[in-house]
Write a protein that binds this DNA or RNA. Sequence first.
DNA 1: GGTTGTGAAATGCTTCACAGCT
DNA 2: AGCTGTGAAGCATTTCACAACC
Lengths: 221, 221
Amino acid sequence: MTQSRPRIPEATVARLAVYLRVLTGLAGGGRSTVSSGELASAAGVNPAGLRKDLSHLGPCGVRGVGYDVATLRDRIARVLGVEQSRACVLVGIGNLGTALADYAGFGSRGFRFVGLFDAAPARVGQRIGGQPVRPMAELDEVVAATAATIGVIATPAEVAQPVCDRLTTAGVRSILNFAPVALAAPPEVDVRQVDLSVELQVLAFLGQQRSDAAGSLEVLA
Amino acid sequence: MTQSRPRIPEATVARLAVYLRVLTGLAGGGRSTVSSGELASAAGVNPAGLRKDLSHLGPCGVRGVGYDVATLRDRIARVLGVEQSRACVLVGIGNLGTALADYAGFGSRGFRFVGLFDAAPARVGQRIGGQPVRPMAELDEVVAATAATIGVIATPAEVAQPVCDRLTTAGVRSILNFAPVALAAPPEVDVRQVDLSVELQVLAFLGQQRSDAAGSLEVLA
DNA sequence: GGTTGTGAAATGCTTCACAGCT
DNA sequence: AGCTGTGAAGCATTTCACAACC
């Protein structure tokens, strides 16, 4: 029955996740209040932008003082839906999949992997972070039993689409795809794509552009 | 002495990297031409946006026909600076670091890792993808010898800042950081941040928002 | 007929500046 | 005095619609 639905911008949601991480760290260090300036510099953003982001949650600071660390943390966690931890399944337990399964950042931020799957018989049965790697045949069963709504794909590109299909028919509603291919999925399923090498390529382009620009310094003199 | 500097938008650069990947795949499959519609759907974007992106490179298609796959691929590769391969060093050879070092997508897209580094003695000397893991003490030497300009950080968060400092003093100009902390670096060094769990959190938020919205379907009826 | 290339409109996001509160 | 919250301005990006072209 929430009457207000002010549509939080996606860019803001992404930053809220970062603020949440920083606030959790501050709370762990015993800190009780922060200013927007300090929080912004720890998160790598500008202070005015941070305040605008927080304004989407309604007033949550004290003027002249700052924000209460624990209160703000809980407020953001509730908005992001991280208060109750969400069940995820992970398909593709290579190096990347193993890194994701082990990554403490997930567990501590409201996500738990309830199933690790791989098609290679050699990997099935290995234990990663206390959990066994299961064969793909058990996917539907595990998704049904755990009510997992999120699937993560860390397979080679060639098999990502069939894995996506299997996840959607098993009942997963959201998919995070690390394989470098665009996936087709029914409209009721959200798919987000992360391409690790795109960031590197953007970085290289910016570096190249900057050194080119350095050749025309005299324009500024 | 390139006289034209029309400032390609960063969002476009990121997508160009994706188009390049798709085009490379098409060329490998023996395909000679593509339309913007087909290329867009393989890249997961909308056709008009793709054409606008390509317009930053100047005219490169044939009206009524489409784009020549090989020509467009080479054009994008040149703009992104992928023709000459770039030397990178990678610090932090855990699961994620290993995944990055092994990831074929880098090698085939203009990046080569010329040094893998880790602080843990147990990891030093292991071979990943044909290369030995080196101790941090050799960092400056390798960066100098290979003229590496890009550093990738895949360490735990606690040591990412000191690693960043070591990379910048060694002479690296661009840094891609996978550790979940905002890094401070001198202004002449580009830092880009990738937080693997942020995407998952955005996905969870969108999923939650959508199921909330499903409760108010009658508004549309 | 079919498809590209592109101005112009629309949208979304960021930054600024300052009013408002403690 | 200090810091938050926010309207408004400025900037970037996406989408649309269609003229230009093969």
